[in-house]
């Protein structure tokens, strides 16, 4: 790896150098391409195989494993998965499950950004008693993920009368400090002069937040939005425990439901599970791709 490490190679318009250097540089470029091609194969290969396999018959997947070639059943499988009504009500389609996952992802990401931005703002920009206590209380939530406190959480949600509701589904997931931690780091990197200037102009906390801090945080918000959207989208265990209403089922749960066949009696519809897996990846992947630039920029800013 050391041989390839040349991130400081100056831009193409570098001063003219001796020939050996040029050759070495070309060799380095080739090596970089090899590394990247290997990486792309490593990351995308399994996805291609998953997609290809989803176009085969479930029996073939069951007995011969993943497939590299195209199986010819793309349209049928994806149509079934997207449009065929399942569940007792017959209304659970892949489309509905996708929509529910979108709701969960959006609700979670937006809720989390709003709440944690406000909290981080208070912690970084205000001097008040208990500030560090508040920070540590919030930070403590990183210690125990929902999976290991899931039963008591269920009881709490029930006592609050929030079973089978989107707020009951989303709020307990929001109770984790990751985003607050990100925003705190980011706010601390913003130069003090900004606040000084704002105060000379007579801006109060509200004006400062709305006019200066929020616009400055745009890319950061985008980065956190992507991260959180994906986290919300990928939830499985909590929604499965919380919701009994079929109309709230999400796509990750749908994948599990297909594979959850009493073993032996039937062959699971592997093709449909894989097709759902591909569909489940599409929207978050799209979010990542669309916000790609902001994502990286946002992260660059956090780290300073």
């Amino acid at each position: 790896m050391t041989a390839l490490a040349d991130p400081l190679a100056p831009a193409p318009a570098a001063p003219a150098a001796a020939r050996p250097v040029n050759r070495a540089r070309r060799r380095a470029q080739i090596l970089h391409h090899i590394v990247l091609i290997f990486g792309v194969l490593l990351m995308c290969g399994p996805m291609v195989v998953t997609f290809m396999s989803s176009t085969w018959d479930p029996v073939v997947i069951h007995s011969e494993g993943l497939q590299l070639g195209y199986g010819g059943k793309f349209l049928e499988t994806y149509e079934t998965v997207l449009l065929k009504g399942g569940g007792f009500t017959g209304e659970i389609t892949g489309t509905l499950m996708l929509w529910n996952s979108v709701l969960l992802g959006l609700g979670f990401a937006i809720g989390k950004i709003v709440i944690s931005m406000l909290a981080a703002y208070a912690i970084v920009y205000f001097r008040f008693p208990f500030a560090s206590l508040a920070f540590w209380v919030i930070f403590a939530t990183l210690l125990l993920p929902l999976e290991v406190r899931i039963l008591p959480s269920y009881e709490v949600v029930q006592r609050l009368g929030m079973l089978n509701s989107w707020s009951g589904l989303i709020l307990p997931l929001i109770a984790s400090a990751t985003a607050t931690f990100f925003f705190r780091q980011f706010f601390r990197s913003i130069p003090d002069e900004l606040l000084e200037a704002a105060r000379i102009d007579g801006a109060g906390p509200f004006r400062f937040f709305v006019d200066i801090l929020a616009p400055l945080s745009k890319t950061m918000m985008a980065a956190i939005f992507i991260i959180m959207f994906v986290v919300g989208w990928n939830q499985y265990l909590w929604p499965a425990l919380m919701t009994t209403d079929e109309s709230m089922f999400t796509i990750v749960r749908g994948i599990r439901q297909i594979l959850q066949v009493w073993i032996g009696a039937n062959i699971p519809d592997y093709n449909q599970a894989l097709a759902l897996a591909i569909l489940a990846m599409a929207p978050p992947a799209l979010v990542v791709l669309v916000f790609q630039r902001m994502f990286i920029k946002g992260l660059v800013e956090t780290e300073k």
């Binding site: 709701l103 959006l106 609700g107 937006i110 809720g111 709003v114 709440i115 406000l118 079973l163 089978n164 509701s165 989107w166 707020s167 989303i170 009994t244 209403d245 109309s247 709230m248």
Partner: peptide, 18 residues
């Protein structure tokens, strides 16, 4: 204020069972 409106907007389509 801000928070509750935004949150409410995010959670608006709350379904209730039954």
């Amino acid at each position: 204020m801000l928070r509750s409106t935004l949150l409410a907007a995010a959670l608006a389509p709350a379904f209730v069972l039954g």
